[in-house]
């Protein structure tokens, strides 16, 4: 099975690799997946306290090329959206964008989980109730 051009592009030149200060109240961190499953994604967002617009997003991913590309795409899409708008990003958008084959759909699911998990971390830090999400999120990320 050959990789799509877009996967190769995001894999070879991943966007927004890095770390944000997770102790900052403006930063939300999502850590999802598990090493034994072969995928771990850490996705972080920095949110403007006034506008709730995501000013910056960073990721690091342990996983296959499709997992890396999925998280790279997710960070690109997050920047400039409000945290409520960001919640509308669905895994199927990523599947479509990267032309992921059926065996790689779980990579996009993980990226969606990472987005929701990062937003929840931000919400809880700022006294907002968490939104509901799937349970594939690391319980105690350190």
């Amino acid at each position: 099975m050959a990789y799509s051009q877009k996967i190769i592009d995001h894999y070879t030149q991943p966007r927004n690799v890095g770390v944000l200060d997770k102790s900052s109240p403006n930063v939300g961190t999502g850590l999802v997946g598990a090493p034994e499953c072969g995928d771990v994604m850490r996705l972080q967002i920095e949110v403007d306290a006034e506008t709730k617009i995501i000013r910056d997003a960073k990721f690091k991913t342990f996983g296959c090329g499709s997992a890396i590309a999925s998280s790279s795409v997710a960070t690109e899409w997050l920047k400039g959206r409000t945290i409520d708008e960001a919640l509308t990003i669905s895994n199927m958008d990523i599947v479509e964008e990267l032309s992921l084959p059926p065996v790689k759909i779980h990579c996009s699911v993980l990226a969606e989980d990472a987005i929701k998990s990062a937003i929840n971390d931000y919400r809880v830090k700022n006294g907002l109730p968490p939104i509901e999400q799937a349970e594939s999120v690391a319980v105690s990320a350190r």
Binding site: V17, V19, A34, P35, V40, M41, K60, T61, F62
Partner: peptide, 19 residues
């Protein structure tokens, strides 16, 4: 690119994390 490598360098024991 690996969050696990970063944790390893920071001395975090990955096996202790509840994934």
């Amino acid at each position: 690119l690996s969050p696990l490598w970063e944790m390893h360098l920071e001395g975090v024991d990955i096996s202790k994390i509840e994934w």
